[in-house]
């Protein structure tokens, strides 16, 4: 059983995940960020692979990616950092990155290194379901890697059912029709959408993301979803405060 599945078996509500871009703000911050997040009670972590052209990301994550890349971050280094942490980090780590990096790195080598680092879950925003099925499903299965699919307010019921069928980690419920970025509030329209998804009685764990930024939006999302992911707001926090006071950021959300 994967670490994520064990987590979901134990805990079904208020799951908090935090996203950060590896190599930001400093090249070697991966360890301190992951350990601080774990120690402050985050349930699982998304490690973003910085990319030159992150199509689904807003200015905050774009900026963190370009800083990380100019710091010299690359896929080899990220895997080295994660491999070094393998024994000491208990909570699940999920890799999030764009497909071109994986193609260039080599699909098989990518999977092998994930396995070496104990990574069992990936999110590849520009890998659509049809391409996943025909080119990646079998390979990922061989390495015990689960792929996370996204759904949005525009995703049809039929497609959501199919995604639910294909998912064995969680479904990433994109909270609004937009790129990533911290927003103020969760609107009535978003709540109606969360309710609609909740009422579908899907088998998969539902985690909301995109625009979840603080205690209030996190709690609101958790009324309907199993948990939520905070990304841009955390990156903004790191920009302003560096990596030494992460516990405070998480504390403010969970207290």
């Amino acid at each position: 059983m994967s670490k994520l599945t064990s987590l979901f078996n134990e805990k079904k509500h208020n799951l908090l995940s935090v996203f950060f871009t590896a190599g930001f703000p400093k090249l070697n911050d991966t360890e301190i960020i992951i350990k601080s997040l774990e120690n402050s009670g985050v349930d699982f972590i998304e490690v973003g692979l910085p990319y030159s052209d992150p199509l689904a990301d807003g200015p905050t994550i774009q900026h963190s990616s370009s800083v990380a890349l100019s710091n010299g971050m690359n896929l080899d280094l990220i895997f080295n950092h994660l491999e070094a942490l393998k024994g000491s980090v208990k909570i699940p780590l999920v890799l999030m990155g764009y497909l071109n990096q994986i193609i260039k790195y080599g699909d098989v080598k990518f999977c092998q290194r994930c396995k070496d680092c104990g990574i069992e879950t990936v999110i590849i925003p520009d890998l659509p379901m049809i391409e996943y099925e025909s080119h990646y499903k079998a390979l990922f299965a061989e390495y015990n890697i689960s792929n996370v699919f996204l759904i949005t307010p525009q995703t049809s019921v039929e497609r959501i059912r199919k995604i639910d069928e294909m998912s064995n980690a969680f479904i990433y419920v994109v909270a609004s029709s937009s790129i990533t970025g911290a927003k103020g509030e969760i609107s009535e329209k978003q709540i109606a959408y969360f309710k609609r998804i909740e009422q579908m009685n899907l088998k998969s764990v539902l985690i909301a993301g995109f625009g979840i930024s603080d205690k209030s939006t996190f709690n609101k999302a958790c009324e309907y979803m199993n948990g939520a992911i905070i990304g841009s707001a955390f990156i903004n926090y790191l920009s302003d405060n560096g990596s030494s006071t992460i516990t405070k950021f998480v504390g403010d959300i969970l207290d």
Binding site: Y51, S52, D53, N74, L75, N100, I103, K104, Y105
Partner: peptide, 21 residues
């Protein structure tokens, strides 16, 4: 260039050794 994905299409694109465009 080498084979990869750019702007939604699998094609040939200029990229570095880690697949950054």
């Amino acid at each position: 260039g080498e084979v990869g994905v750019l702007h939604g299409s699998k094609t040939i694109l200029m990229q570095d050794e880690f697949g950054q465009v």
